[in-house]
Design a protein around this nucleic acid. Structure first.
Lengths: 95, 95, 95, 95
DNA sequence: AACGTTGAAATAGTTC
DNA sequence: GAACTATTTCAACGTT
């Protein structure tokens, strides 16, 4: 295997090509998304408003995640280990 | 189906959720790419150089596309209709 | 000088107006460019082709910059400090 | 002068180069603007708010009253009491 | 003149 | 927290 300054060209090439394949997939998905917007527009929806809706829904999810994160911090601060399934497991007690 | 001001909520919801699913897939791919870089880095590769290599390879591809695009434009400008398969079909003549 | 909450209104105003002046110049240049295209069109040139030519020329320049950039990265990666004047100094050797 | 299909290469080249020069100037101005923002930032100003201010000043005639409310909010956020005439009167002091 | 397409600008996110 | 990169957004251009 060819190496330059301790660097393997073949190995590097593999990483490069893996990234390129993933980025191609990613670009295809971006296209798919664009097509959904186009279809929605053809059905009379306002894409600008749709994007706003998506943004708000995303923030809701993030907010929920953040709140869960904060809850975890609080529980840790209280010496309580957060449970995986809060509702199902009730037999665990904090010492 | 519920409508508000002539807008179908159910229909809109479907578009929104399709986009959200696609964006989730896209985000996952972005994660995969990040992981590849992390793995490469753990193997001693310089990610900055990797990104530069990727950039140049991408530009090469784009440049090729642009060259083909302008060839088409030139042919049109010269009154020649570009052929689907330039090399295979030779029976078409330009007036 | 009037300040509010440690913020100088007059100072802010100066920055705002400097930006506005520069943006005005920029808008004027955009107009000039539009006029050149209009003039070229009036002389029978296809603006689409012109834009494509400009695009390719721009990519060429960028590609050259990217090439130089990655050369620098490679040299650094190999422990070689890139020289200011690549062509003039050839007496430096890498151990 | 060389012509292809009635197209003058030299003439075209002149148009192309005029556009390139103008675009270079435009790019330089964009850089200057970026530098002004950087300088303002280094002086403790919030560039995001500055951009908002610029946007609102640009709108001027249209939807002025609506935007003034937002401007008021931003200025308040800065701890500044909004002025009646921002640009013309600089001698006014806030009690 | 509205539409889609494309290029530039701004913002958000990531890395060091 | 500063710089760089990626994504998103905005505006202009050509097209129908």
């Amino acid at each position: 295997m060819t190496t330059f300054g301790g660097v393997s060209g073949a190995h590097l090439k593999q990483f490069i090509e893996r990234v390129e394949r993933l980025e191609e997939d990613k670009a295809n998905l971006a296209n798919d998304i664009r097509e959904v917007f186009a279809e929605a527009k053809a059905n009379g929806f306002d894409t600008k408003i749709m994007r706003q809706v998506l943004k708000i829904r995303k923030m809701d999810h993030q907010e929920r995640s953040e709140q869960e994160e904060i809850l975890t911090l609080y529980l840790h601060a209280l010496g309580m280990v957060p449970q995986e399934n809060f509702s199902e497991k009730t037999e665990n007690e904090v010492a």
